[in-house]
């Protein structure tokens, strides 16, 4: 019996390798839907990931609390001052808003809000150092689909790349596979914002035209030319401008506004028809 199995060992290994290469090839191309096994696996792990991420967050918050306890009094006084200043600003902005609404009405402008937002919790991160992805606790049961944009109030986070029933995986903009259309806020020049930097914390903005002007301190926002991200979402700030070797062009190093290491909750941008906000 054993000899019989051993005789088939080599062909079996070859068959297994062929199947594995085929599977890798099949899954390397963009897929609309995950396989059943992947979907079940990801959904099964959601509660455990949720519990672990909550426990981890609780511990980190406690450590943070102890650390900030000393500076609490000073900070409180600073914040009270800030609240007063902000209240004054809010009052001023309310006046502007009312004035703006009145002017819009007068000019017969349409409401520009085209998207609903769905709040999702970050319950996991890519275990690999070579992929920058996060796992959210919302899936297609909540109306999430592949290709949707993910943002926070600070700026762009990434794009949904795979969805199971109760979870979804987001490709962060700092990943090597990510490329986003952006524009320099001060000049309106178009740039291509790419991830894949060695430090995995910054982005690279490449100009789309030779006349593009980018300076340190410039803010890069989404161009809105693609259907993924809403227009004018903040991406990051230019921290360095480097000229490219053998080229007359340059590229700018952009530090994203979003701190990807501290992400807890994000907003998934839904088309308005999907309803859930």
């Amino acid at each position: 019996m054993l000899e019989h199995i051993l005789r088939w060992k080599v062909p079996l290994i070859i068959l297994l390798v062929v199947i594995m290469v085929g599977t890798i090839h099949y899954t390397s191309t963009p897929r609309v839907k995950l396989s059943m096994l992947e979907g079940i696996g990801r959904d099964l792990l959601v509660p455990f990931q949720w519990v672990f991420s909550r426990a981890q967050r609780f511990i980190l918050h406690q450590v943070d609390k102890v650390q900030t306890m000393r500076t609490l009094k000073e900070r409180n006084a600073e914040l009270e001052e800030l609240v007063q200043a902000l209240q004054a600003e809010v009052l001023e902005l309310r006046n502007y808003k009312r004035e703006n609404e009145w002017l819009r009405e007068a000019l017969d402008f349409k409401d520009e809000r085209e998207h609903d937002l769905l709040v999702a919790e970050v319950i996991g991160r890519s275990p690999s150092n070579w992929e920058s992805t996060i796992i959210l606790n919302k899936g297609f049961a909540h109306g999430v689909h592949e290709g949707m944009a993910v943002v926070t109030s600070e700026g762009v986070v990434g794009t949904v790349i795979s969805v199971s029933r109760y979870s979804s995986t987001v490709l962060l903009i700092v990943d090597a596979q990510s490329a986003t259309g952006g524009l320099v806020q001060s000049t309106g020049d178009l740039v291509l914002v790419e991830g894949g930097q060695a430090d995995r914390e910054t982005l690279l903005a490449k100009p789309l035209s030779r006349d593009t002007v980018v300076e340190v301190g410039d803010v890069i926002v989404t161009s809105g030319l693609s259907t993924v991200y809403p227009k004018n979402m903040p991406v990051g700030e230019v921290v360095a401008v480097e000229s490219r070797q053998y080229e007359l062009s340059f590229s700018a190093v952009v530090r994203p506004f979003v701190d990807f290491n501290r992400l807890e909750y994000v907003l998934i941008v839904l088309p308005q028809d999907n309803g859930e906000s």
Binding site: I19, M20, T23, I24, S28, G41, L45, T133, T169
Partner: peptide, 16 residues
């Protein structure tokens, strides 16, 4: 395989 199924991008690459 578990890593590929749950968080991987290429099914069975980590397994191999």
């Amino acid at each position: 395989l578990a890593q590929d199924l749950i968080v991987g991008r290429f099914l069975t690459l980590h397994a191999g």
